[in-house]
Computed example of a mutant assay.
Amino acid sequence: MTRTLETERLLLRPYRASDAVALAEQIGEFAVSQWLTRVPHPYGEADTLAFFDKVASEAMVYAVCRADEVVGCVSIMGDLGYWYGAKHWGRGYATEAARAVVNAHFAHSDAPIDSGYIAGNEASRNVLKKIGFVSNGSKETPCLSRKANVTINRVILSRDKWESSA
């Protein structure tokens, strides 16, 4: 599988150790981490480096870059997941990068892709809807940053749905 992907505006590439400080600062903002179930708050550079070590061999885990600046992350590790620094919200990066990763997935697999978003995260819901994901129930899950359970609205995307909406 390709280790880098390019879109019109973005480069999706493997993480580098030099990305750790910028990513820790971005994901360390509660405005970001509150929407992620597996990210503690506070979150520091050591947490980022541990994440890099954990995902180093994963083919579908990308740092999302715009003009040499890391703006967030997108991956398919079982589920499609993504996050972006708050200063990069509202620019369409999440949809653009997710489309690239979904396209790469379906170029090599017919397996459907699962994802989800925390109830109340309308921006994430909209990204998934634009790509073609459809509702697949909900579940309660612990959220480390909030130190409480949250409702995750589950969604799924089949290859047929992807191809019909692309």
Rank of each mutant, 00 (worst) to 15 (best):
S57D: 12
R159V: 07
N103K: 12
T141N: 08
I76N: 00
E58K: 13
A63I: 06
P112F: 08
L10E: 01
V74E: 06
L49G: 10
L157V: 06
P142Q: 09
G85N: 14
A20I: 01
A86W: 04
R99H: 09
G72S: 05
A46F: 10
K130Y: 03
T141M: 09
S124D: 03
Y93M: 04
A119N: 12
E163V: 01
R154Y: 04
E58S: 15
A56F: 11
T2C: 12
S164W: 01
H88A: 03
I118T: 10
N121Q: 15
V101S: 14
G44H: 15
A94R: 13
D68A: 14
G81S: 15
R13L: 09
S18A: 15
R146K: 08
G81E: 08
N121I: 05
A86D: 15
N121F: 09
C65G: 11
D160A: 11
V71Y: 00
A67T: 09
G44V: 13
R16F: 03
E6P: 00
K129R: 15
D47V: 04
R154K: 10
E45F: 00
A22D: 14
V55N: 13
Y15H: 15
D160Y: 04
A17P: 03
P40I: 11
A50D: 07
V21F: 11
R146N: 03
